[in-house]
Amino acid sequence: MTETSISLQDIVLHFPKQRNIFGIISDFFRKKIRRFTALSGVNLHIKQGEVVGIIGRNGSGKSTLLRVISGIYPPDEGMVHAAGDISLLAGLGTGFSPHQTGRENALLYGSILGHSEEEMLSKLDEIIEFSELGSFIDEPLRTYSAGMKARLGLAVASAIKPNILLIDEVLGVGDPNFREKSKNKILAMVKGASTVVIVSHSFGLMTDVCDRVVLLDRGKIIAEGDPQTSIKAYYDLEE
């Protein structure tokens, strides 16, 4: 398995700085677009079967990079290639509806994550069991605690086995008991998926699971290599 799974070539991504129509018009007359560069010239090649971590300070472009890989932000320059279906695990439970039951929300969230109807119906029992919601599954979601919603979110999100799994800081939800279970579940997903990219501040986890860690600073890759080296580079950066 040495085929390329994700390939980022010279990725540049800008965000507009002028956020109103007057600014856009004045940019137009100055013939200069004022913008904020979130990623500048990122090159990253990930092989199938690799588990890659991305670290960096807040606002260094980690989450943006995952969004570029998943297609949320098409790059302004450069090219992104990926092999197989991609699943981004972030903000568990996006789009939940408080007025529908847990069961209906499982189907809704599953469809938002891109699963087909057959896939969801066949995995529904497994999802309900993992969420540990018991009879609450047929109650409206507004009666749920935050932890219960997070459990349902994780249960749905982890039910699929994508080729490429992108994880953005989703560890540590629910009570300690479930947190352990969810960590194990995510680790199982990491093992199940052929390629994984993780964004996290938990360096312990990075050292445990990642083959390679990339350090991002101000939209550029500063260091790339085995976890220890990159984490050390991160602390050097902090000075």
Binding site: M1, E3, T4, S7, Q48, V68, I69, S70, G71, Y73, P74, P75, M79, V80, H81, A82, A83, G84, D85, I86, E119, I160, K161, P162, N163, G192, A193, S194
Partner: peptide, 18 residues
């Protein structure tokens, strides 16, 4: 789809402008 079978998925470009 979604199964990690022996067939390797094909590389495709992401974020192509239609």
């Amino acid at each position: 789809m979604g199964q990690n079978g022996p067939t390797t998925p094909v590389l495709r470009q992401i974020g192509v402008k239609s």
